[in-house]
Amino acid sequence: MTTRPEDVMQLLADARPGRLDPDGRPDPANYTAQSVTRRRSVPRRLILAGALPMAAAATAVALVLTGGGTDPVPAPPGSPAGPGSPGAAATPGSARELLLVAAAQTDASATATSGRYWVRVQEHGERKEVGRYGIASRLLIERWLASAAGDPNVEVYQNLGAAPVTAADEAAWKADGSPQQWTETGPKGTPPIVRTTAVGPRQVRAIRGLLPMMIAGRQVTAADLAGLPSEPGALKSWLTARLPQHADDDLFYAGRDLVAELPVSAAVRAAAYRMLADLQGVDFLGVVQDRQGRSGMAVAFTRRGDGGWGQQRLIVDPGTGRALAQESWFLGSAATPAGPGTLMSWTVYVRAGFTDEAAPTP
């Protein structure tokens, strides 16, 4: 595999949605993500291509990862392993309350800080339109990052197979004869892309050069992450100085990356949660489930793109402060009303943490 998922969201519709609140933004109550108490089917016709977000995990800053000029990285976040389960004692009723609870839980967390490898496992998914229905194209990505000289840093990729996204998509797929593969046009100059329901083999390759680490779509280094402040205001100032537009949506994406994707200390993650709690425009979506059925609570940032409304969601377990998933949703436009919204792409944080096991070999 030669390409990596990029953290972008492309909106391709034409006009303004009909369901707006007075300040011109959609009512977030209409767009709950995978609601535990109520589910709605979504439209099958869309002209939005969701993109797969991706960032890097890494090992402790005191450890120098060797080989191919690989960058040393700071201490990793706590493991988001296990199912999310909002506890009875943690019942936030707003985005701010949820994010502050997550910050407090992060401050109180105790995780292993050493091991032969830092391992991060994520499942990435993207909705693809095929005629009258959508399929989910899914990819599992593992990163094994060594703590000592002599051990290789490796990535493991596995195509998890495609399948209809929703119950409505599944019904349309069955009416279409339940095809087992689909072909789509590739980028100019490349062969067509074949997507299949079959699970592919695990592919292992060495990580060479600097580890790809991004904040809100901009490259950062291990030194950048090691120097991040652990006070919310200072962290916001650091991010604002790096982000081109200094907009709240950029800060939301940056905070999301820090709490969910990047190898930063627990203190920095807690500061990122507190920074998010003070941002304008962060909505509360209540109790939801991620794509693996784990329960959590979601916050979201909604914005209008060139042709329609899109929403980025972060699902958190308030009982542990762990990020469970992030999702990109299309909320529609006047030309393509999307009802409760359509999930276009997602990243599920399966697990992360240290292990003394040997890494897979290429």
Rank of each mutant, 00 (worst) to 15 (best):
R313W: 00
L258Q: 08
P337Y: 01
G341R: 01
L48P: 00
P43H: 15
P80I: 01
R40A: 14
D250F: 01
R40C: 12
Q122H: 11
D107I: 02
A62S: 10
A55G: 12
Q289L: 15
P337C: 04
V348Y: 02
G339D: 10
S237V: 06
V350M: 06
T342Y: 05
V204T: 15
A216Y: 01
L46M: 08
G293D: 03
G161Q: 03
W238M: 07
L99G: 00
S79C: 06
Q10G: 02
P201M: 08
A300K: 01
R25Q: 11
R294Q: 15
R291I: 09
R218E: 13
V194D: 04
P232K: 05
V119E: 09
V259Q: 02
T302H: 11
P232L: 08
A300M: 06
L211S: 01
S114P: 05
T3R: 12
N30L: 13
G87S: 12
P212D: 06
T183R: 13
P152S: 12
A163D: 13
A95I: 07
D71F: 06
F252C: 04
D151K: 04
A359M: 09
Y117F: 14
D14N: 15
P92G: 11
A247R: 12
A110K: 06
D27M: 00
D107H: 09
V42I: 13
E129N: 08
H246F: 04
P76N: 09
S94M: 11
T111M: 07
E357W: 02
A58W: 03
V119S: 08
T197P: 00
E129F: 04
Y133L: 05
K174Q: 14
D248G: 09
V8T: 13
M1A: 15
A62P: 01
G115M: 07
D224A: 13
A104R: 15
G68S: 15
L48D: 14
W309V: 06
T111S: 09
L331T: 06
T32I: 15
P17D: 09
V204W: 07
W329M: 13
L235N: 02
T342S: 12
A358F: 11
D283I: 05
A323C: 06
G353F: 01
T221D: 09
W309S: 03
N153R: 07
P201K: 10
G161W: 04
L145K: 09
A29D: 14
